[in-house]
Structures are given as structure tokens and as C-alpha cells.
Design a protein around this nucleic acid. Structure first.
Lengths: 189, 189
DNA sequence: GAGCGCATGTAAAGGGTTACATGATTCT
DNA sequence: AGAATCATGTAACCCTTTACATGCGCTC
């Protein structure tokens, strides 16, 4: 369960409310770690009860900003350097590719073109953010340096998926003659 | 929810038991779509009740092999060509990178070296399978053609992550002088 | 006959999404 | 005054994992 640590990590940058954190998840972490507000508010309560964060300030409209505690900071650090990384890379796009043979060749081609377009778009978006960061638009704080590293991952991974989708379009569709493995009744000569 | 469709897709290749399917998920689909046996057995019951699969044969030790029905085949096809793709790419590795600035530089370097080694290993493994397929070791059935496409995704994505981890090791650690954004009390001259 | 791998399942708990619900403040 | 946005939370449901439980069949 990494949402807990994601929240602690974001709060290590400075105080923030549940609403702030939900927005940051949606805008930046969402593609690799989705989190909706109900889960975030629930987790914040738990973290608060556990003494890892505490209320920093109350604002308008019942806004409650949380601040990370020393215990919280220690916990993120412990997670980062001690906990084993879960390397699962859940991807519906790749899962579907196992079943491409079930698709009509035209549908598949159209699907791959759409996938290529989508992945290229995201890669370009990440490239845009990275360029802005490199121009110094986000300052030079250490957090932005890490953000730059994360963006580099996004650029490379999404570009590789775009290239894959493009390459897949060049793979010839399975022709009936090639379906040698599938047992079929002998054709009467 | 794609487990339902993953199971249907695998059963479209031929009859299989829950145990078989669990093994195939672990060996092939696991990295992109993990599924443990309790979930698989539960889903098979549901698919059976929905008329998308039916019991094909009973074997030793209570083994029950399922066969896909026409309704089931239609449902996988519908999913593949009509349902919107969920492009979320959940990755704890990338999530962690947002928080690298919290790590001790030596720990981070060690972490990145391990990540690079891991991703390289998986990419090489996928390359090995792909080469075997290209040598014709898995036959020429259309399913194996799709498997080859999925393997290509694995090769490209994991290689890009390995390259990223290698690149990240060359990013100089944040030095105190650069932390301009973080408000700090003025040093008494 | 001991041990391993095959084979199925239930139960409990945890993680995550969607829908519902409410109200305050700011902007036009 | 009305609309948009800020802001928090609950409830119900779904998805997923981990632990528990059982027993057969094959191999050594």
C-alpha cells in the first residue's frame, strides 16, 4: 500500500490539505498511481491517528491543512530505503495485446493507431513539462529535481509504448495458412 | 475489471482449469496483470453462471476444465474492439522517483543500481522468449503471434526503464546551495 | 509411506472507485 | 442572483490479496 507513503512524500514538501493532495495526485502522480479524494481523506485520518501528520492550519470552507511530523518523515524515508519495491507494471494496453489474435485485422489496426497516438501525446506532454523544468520554470528545489527524474521515466516509457504500437502495425496479420498449431479436421482432398 | 476478459481470452485458446489459468497468469500475464487463484476461481464461477464458459471435462483430483462458449467469445471480442482502454500504468518504481529527494544520496545510488539490474534482467528474459518464438519454438498459431507482440512491449518498456535507472544515476544529487526555493532562516553573517 | 505438486475452494481483510451528500466562498 | 470552484466527508460496492483449509495422485 503506497498511497500512505505517497501522501507522506507530498506532505514532506510542505503542508497541504486533502483537496490539494487530491489535485496533485490527479495532475502529477495519477498516471502512475491513481488516488481519488475519498481514499485520500480516509488515509489522512489514519495517518493523523498514527501521529505521522498533524493539522497545521484551518482555512476557509472547513479547509484543513496537514503538516508532516518527524515520525512521518522517518516513515517515508524508511519506506524508500528499506521496503522492497513492487515491480508490477499493471497495463491494460499490454494485457490486451495478448488477445490481439481474436480481433478483426482492421479493428486491430485502428486500435493500434489510436494507442500510438495516445502514447505519443502523453510522451510529448511529459517532454513539455521536462523542458519547462529545464528552463528553470519550476525553480531549483530538490523536489523539482526529483520531479524531473520522474518525468524522464514518463517520457521514456510512453515513448517506448508509442514505438511499440507503431511497430505492431507492421506485424502482418495471422493468415489462415499459418495457423498450423490449431488442430483442424483434415480437408478432404 | 479486466480479469474477466483475461480469463475469457485465455480460454479462447482452448479449455483449461482454474489451476492452469492461475499458472498462466503467474508466468505470462502476471507482470502486467497479476491474478491469484482465489480470484480466478471466483471469477470462473461467475463466468459460468453468466453462460460465458461451461465445464468441458472433469479430471483427476477434482480437476474441472472450462470451455468458452459463443457468448463468451463474443464478449471478449466486444471488450477488445468497443471498451475504452484504461491507460493507467501503475508503477511503484516511478512513484518512488517523485520522492528521491528525500533519500540519502548513497542509498539512492544503490537503489538505482538495483532497479537498473532488475529491469535489465526482465528485458533480457523477454528477449530470450522472443528469440525462441522467432526461432519457431512455440509454433505459428495466431495466439503465439500475439504473445510475440506482447513480449515486444515487455522488451521495450523494461529496457526503457533500465535505461532510465542508469541515466538517473548520472543526475547529480541536490546540493544544499541549490535548494533556493525552500524557505530557510537567514544565516547570521 | 513420505513428500511433493496438483487442484479446488472459503473467509477475512485490505485497497480502491463511484455515487451520494453537503455546504462555504468566490467570481461574474 | 447564479454558477463555478473549493472543500470535506460517508456509504456501498467492487476488486484484490493473504491466510486458512482440504484432499487426491504421483513419484521416490
Amino acid at each position: 500500500m503506497s498511497l500512505r507513503h505517497g501522501l507522506l512524500g507530498l506532505l514532506a514538501e510542505g503542508p497541504a490539505s486533502g483537496y490539494d493532495l487530491a489535485r496533485r495526485f490527479e495532475e502529477h502522480l495519477g498516471p502512475v498511481w491513481p488516488a481519488q479524494h475519498p481514499k485520500i481523506y480516509a488515509e489522512l485520518s489514519r495517518l493523523s491517528k498514527a501521529g505521522m501528520i498533524e493539522v497545521d492550519s484551518h482555512g476557509p470552507r472547513g479547509r484543513k491543512a496537514y503538516r508532516i511530523t518527524d515520525a512521518g518523515r522517518a516513515e517515508v524515508r524508511r519506506w524508500l530505503s528499506e521496503d522492497a519495491v513492487d515491480h508490477t507494471l499493471r497495463s491494460e494496453s499490454v494485457l490486451r495485446s495478448f488477445f490481439f489474435w481474436l480481433m478483426d485485422p482492421d479493428d486491430l489496426h485502428e486500435h493500434l493507431r489510436r494507442e500510438q497516438r495516445y502514447f505519443t501525446e502523453i510522451a510529448d506532454l511529459a517532454r513539455g513539462y521536462a523542458a519547462a523544468k529545464d528552463r528553470g520554470e519550476y525553480g531549483t528545489a530538490p523536489q523539482t529535481k526529483s520531479m524531473r527524474v520522474a518525468l524522464e521515466a514518463a517520457i521514456r516509457v510512453y515513448q517506448s509504448l508509442a514505438d511499440w504500437a507503431e511497430w505492431a502495425q507492421t506485424v502482418p496479420p495471422a493468415t489462415p495458412e499459418e495457423d498450423a498449431d490449431t488442430p483442424r479436421p483434415p480437408t478432404p482432398a
